[in-house]
Design a protein around this nucleic acid. Structure first.
Lengths: 341, 341
DNA sequence: GTTGACACCGAAACCGGTTTCGGAAATAGT
DNA sequence: ACTATTTCCGAAACCGGTTTCGGTGTCAAC
C-alpha cells in the first residue's frame, strides 16, 4: 500500500528546504513567503505528494474520524433510513477531511461495548448516536466519559447533550387533528414502545390532540408493536376485532402501517373506506401500495447533514446546550386516509 | 481525546522495562519470558493501557481499515440491502481488528474519485466494491492501481479479480421454469439495464429458460426499468397494454415488482389471477403486500461475511483467481404467482 | 575453564508527519 | 549608521507505537 513514493522528507530534500518549512507551506501558514509556498505546492503536485494520514493523525493527536455504531436489532423497518442517513453523514464529513467509521454491534448484548472499544482504541474523535431511547445507556456512558457526540433523536437527558430531532410529536398531533377534521372520533394508534423515545413522543402527540378535541382514547386503543410490519399485522388485527372498532389508526412508522393495511384487508375491510391508516417515515414504497400510504416525513439526507454540522460545533468545543435542533415533519397526504365512514 | 493516561512509555517505566520488551510482551512474541509477559499484561490491565491506534498504524504501515464507498444513485430500492450488508461486513471485520470506513460519492460525477481519494491519502488497505456493472470503471481503476479489493457481484473482468456473487441468472432460470410449469407461455421481464451487471445475467437466465422450453420471447417482452418502483409501474403498464398481454412478469428486483403489481391493479387486473409477478431480493415488506410477493433471495448477512472473508484472503496476498465464489439463490414462494389464466 | 547455544531483554532507529523555538537576513525606525 | 522589528526558514523534539540488531546472563557441553 506504499507504492506512492514521495513523503515529506523526499519532498523537502527535492526542494532544498526543511521538513518544517514544507509542512507549513502545505498547510498555508502565514510565516512562509508566497514564493516558496508556490514552489512547494508545484513540486508537491509534480511529485504526486500526499501526506500520510496515519502520520498526520498521530502528530495532531486527532483521528479526524467519527464513529457510527449501528444498533443491533435494526430490522428491515429502518433499513433505508440507515443507509440514506449514513450516506448523507459521510458526505457531510468529507469536505472537512473527516471520515466515517461504521461499527456494528451485532451479537453484542451490551449496547455500549462498541462505543467503549472505539474510544479506548482512540479510533474516533466523536460519535453520532442514532435511534435513541428515552433511557439510553449509550448516551449515559458517553456523557459520563465526556466523549463528544450528537444524537439523532432526544433522550431523557436531552438537555445535557447535543441532538437533532424531527418533531414527530407535533406531526402526530397534526395528523390526529387532520383525522378529526375528517370526522373521525374513534382513532387508535400502534406505538413502538420503548424501542424509540420518539415512539413515545408520537404517542403523546396523538393523545394530546385527542384531549384537546375532547375525545376519549380507550385503554386498548393504544397498543405497542415493535416497529415491524409483522407486528403491525398482529396489533392491527387486534384493534379491528375490538368491540368498538376504530375508524382510523395512526402507526408509529411506515412498516407498521403496511402491516396495518394488510390487517384491514385480512379483515375484509377497505382502506380508507372503512379504516384510515397513516404512517410515519415516508418510505418510497408507500407510494406503490394499495392504497398509497399517507405518511409523515422529513428529508433524511438533510437530517444527516444537520447532525454532522452539529457534531463539528461540538468538536470545536461548543456547549451542547446551544446545539439542540428540532425540525418539523410534514404530512404527506396520499390516499390511505379519508372521511370517517 | 487523550484523557486515558498511560502510553507505552509510562507502562515501560512503571515496569522497569524497555518499550521494546513491553511491546513484544503485549504482542505475544516468543522471546519474552512467560513471567514478564504475565507481569506486563497485569500491569497493562491495571493501568488501563490500550495502544494508540494511530501510532500503531503508522508503525506497521497498515491502516487495518477497509473502504466501502456507497454508489451515488442508490435509490430506496437498495436501501435495506446496503444497511444490512454494511452491518454484516463491519461485523466480520471487527474480530480481525479491522475497521470499516464508509465513504459516499454523492455529488461526484466520477465514480472513481472516492476510491482515488482514499487510496492517495492511504486511508484504507483495501476495498469492498458493491453494485458492480458489467463495465465497471471502479474495478478498472483498482485493477490498474493494484489495490486489493473484492467485488460483491461480477464484472466483465471477473476472471481478474476476487468476487462474491449470488447466481441470480440461475435463479431466474428456475423461476422461469417454475412459471412455465404453471402453464405460462407469454412471460415478460422488466430488467434493470446496465445499472447492474447482475441485471443482465438475470435477463439471460430468463431468456435461456424460455429458449430451452422452446418458447419465444417477443422483442417488447423484455423492457428496461431502473430498479425503482416507479419505473416498475410505468414499464408494467406498457407491458399490460401490449397487444399480446403477458400472463407472467419477472422483475429484476422487488421494488420493480411492487410497481408491477400496482400496474396490474391500475389496469383493473388481479395478481396472480390474471398476471403472475415474481421479484428478486426478498425484502421483508414483500410479505405484507397484496398479494404477498413471490421472490428470490439469499441472506444478505451471509454475503457480507463472505465478502469480508475473501478480502482478508486477498490482503494476505492470495491470488484473486482462487477467490471467486458463486452462491445459489432460493425461490421464496409466496402468493404472487399462480397458474396461467 | 572455555566455548557455544540459547533465552531474554534494551538501545536506537524508524514510521511520516506537526510544532516549538530560535536564528539569520531583510527591512524599518531614528 | 545603528538598533529594533519583521519576515522567513531550519534544527530538533515530539506523537506512540514497532522492529532491527545486539548484548548480557545462564546453562550445558567438551
Amino acid at each position: 500500500m506504499t507504492k506512492s513514493g514521495a513523503n515529506l522528507n523526499d519532498l523537502a530534500q527535492h526542494l532544498g528546504l526543511s521538513k518544517a518549512t514544507v509542512s507549513r507551506a502545505l498547510n498555508g501558514y502565514e510565516d512562509i513567503s508566497e514564493a516558496t509556498k508556490r514552489r512547494v505546492l508545484e513540486t508537491a503536485l509534480e511529485l504526486g505528494y500526499e501526506p500520510s494520514t496515519s502520520a498526520r493523525r498521530l502528530a495532531i493527536r486527532q483521528t479526524e474520524t467519527i464513529g457510527l455504531v449501528l444498533p443491533a436489532a435494526t430490522g428491515e423497518a429502518s433499513g433505508s433510513f440507515i443507509s440514506e442517513f449514513t450516506a448523507s453523514v459521510a458526505n457531510a464529513l468529507t469536505p472537512q477531511g473527516f471520515d466515517l467509521l461504521v461499527h456494528s454491534s451485532q451479537g453484542e448484548s451490551d449496547p455500549v461495548s462498541g462505543y467503549r472499544k472505539l474510544v479506548r482504541a482512540r479510533k474516533v474523535d466523536g460519535f453520532i448516536v442514532i435511534r435513541t431511547r428515552e433511557q439510553d445507556a449509550r448516551v449515559d456512558w458517553l456523557l459520563e466519559q465526556g466523549v463528544p457526540f450528537v444524537a439523532h433523536g432526544r433522550t431523557a437527558r436531552a438537555n445535557e447533550h447535543a441532538w437533532f430531532d424531527i418533531d414527530a410529536g407535533q406531526a402526530f398531533y397534526q395528523a390526529t387533528q387532520h383525522l378529526i377534521a375528517l370526522g373521525h372520533r374513534r382513532i387508535a394508534m400502534i406505538s413502538g414502545g420503548d424501542l424509540l423515545y420518539s415512539s413515545r413522543l408520537r404517542e403523546q402527540g396523538f393523545r394530546e390532540a385527542m384531549k384537546d378535541s375532547g375525545l376519549f382514547v380507550p385503554e386498548h386503543y393504544v397498543t405497542e408493536g415493535d416497529l415491524s410490519g409483522l407486528e403491525g399485522v398482529r396489533r392491527g388485527a387486534e384493534l379491528l376485532s375490538a368491540p368498538e372498532r376504530p375508524t382510523a389508526v395512526l402507526c408509529v412508522n411506515d412498516a407498521t402501517a403496511f402491516g396495518m393495511i394488510k390487517a384491514v384487508r385480512d379483515a375484509g375491510l377497505r382502506v380508507p373506506h372503512d379504516v384510515s391508516v397513516i404512517g410515519y417515515d415516508g418510505v418510497a414504497l408507500g407510494e406503490l401500495l394499495d392504497p398509497p400510504l399517507t405518511t409523515m416525513t422529513r428529508s433524511i439526507g438533510e437530517s444527516g447533514q444537520m447532525v454532522a454540522r452539529l457534531l463539528f460545533e461540538v468538536l470545536r468545543g461548543a456547549s451542547p446546550r446551544q446545539h439542540q435542533t428540532l425540525w418539523p415533519a410534514e404530512l404527506l397526504r396520499r390516499a390511505s386516509d379519508g372521511p370517517a365512514p
